[in-house]
């Protein structure tokens, strides 16, 4: 017997975030629920945090802080804007924001894919640890601060301080870079880089001319303590 695609609608005008999240946490493979729609998010915080189920979640409207935080497996889409720390510490699955994202999008993300179709604000991808991030618009200042692993594609511009003190994460910027942070440097794009960007844009379902992208990675001068630098970085 083939499973029937089942969609459940939850309305945050009738239920609390806690109740909605509990429902989401209780989802098991046996229920056969493949899609959950969440209505009237109204900027509430912490919607769909801590997911660990292979379902599609559609949040219709603007969400507040921590939307889809700590996500595993789930494919979450927010049709509006999100507040601070969307997809914070994402492990796997994907989170898509159709509008703009506030600060610290995908902060410390370990895996999965985070797509911001609009702009992402300050500190996007701060301390990222393996997540892939694709931003259709621009990113705010200090994005990719101390980023350890993973890739971030920015189709628009990057505000000052991009990649400050970064480790092994790599950034691709399609627009203007308004300033690099300490130890971040622009490097030539290799064929492998172009292939990375092409594949990430495809996964994100976004388009941008490939030849525009510049690669930013660590110069690795901060990896070892240098007494001569007198702490002047």
């Amino acid at each position: 017997m083939g499973s029937v695609m089942q969609t459940v609608k939850l309305d945050l005008q009738d239920q609390t975030v806690r109740e909605v999240n509990q429902f989401l946490h209780d989802l098991g493979p046996s229920e056969g629920i493949e899609q959950v729609e969440i209505l009237h998010p109204q900027g509430n915080h912490s919607i769909a945090v801590g997911m660990d189920a292979d379902v599609e979640i559609l949040i219709r409207g603007h969400a507040g802080y921590f939307a889809a935080g700590m996500n595993k497996q789930a494919r979450v889409t927010i049709t509006g804007n999100v507040g601070w720390s969307v997809a914070e510490n994402i492990m796997s699955g994907s989170v898509r924001v159709k509008g703009n994202a506030s600060q610290s999008a995908a902060a410390s993300g370990h895996g999965g894919l985070v797509v911001i179709e609009g702009n992402a604000s300050n500190r996007c991808g701060i301390s990222m640890k393996g997540v892939d991030i694709v931003v259709g618009g621009s990113v705010g200042h200090l994005s990719g601060f101390m980023a350890q692993a993973g890739r971030m594609v920015v189709c628009g511009d990057a505000d000052p301080g991009l990649g400050d003190s970064l480790y092994e994460a790599v950034f691709y910027v399609g627009g203007e870079i308004r300033g690099l942070g300490a130890d971040a440097r622009e490097e030539p794009m290799t064929d492998a880089d172009f292939a990375s960007v092409r594949s990430l844009l495809e996964h994100a379902d976004l388009k941008h001319p490939l030849e525009k992208f510049k690669r930013v990675a660590s110069a690795r001068t901060l990896y070892h303590w240098n007494t001569d630098a007198q702490q002047e970085y």
């Binding site: 603007h62 507040g64 802080y65 804007n81 507040g83 600060q103």
Partner: peptide, 22 residues
């Protein structure tokens, strides 16, 4: 400070919404 306190305003979801730059 947060969008959730603006959500009740008339046409808030159609408003031009942005964060001030530093």
């Amino acid at each position: 400070s947060e969008y959730r306190s603006l959500a009740h305003l008339p046409d808030a979801d159609q408003a031009e919404i942005f964060e001030p730059q530093p």
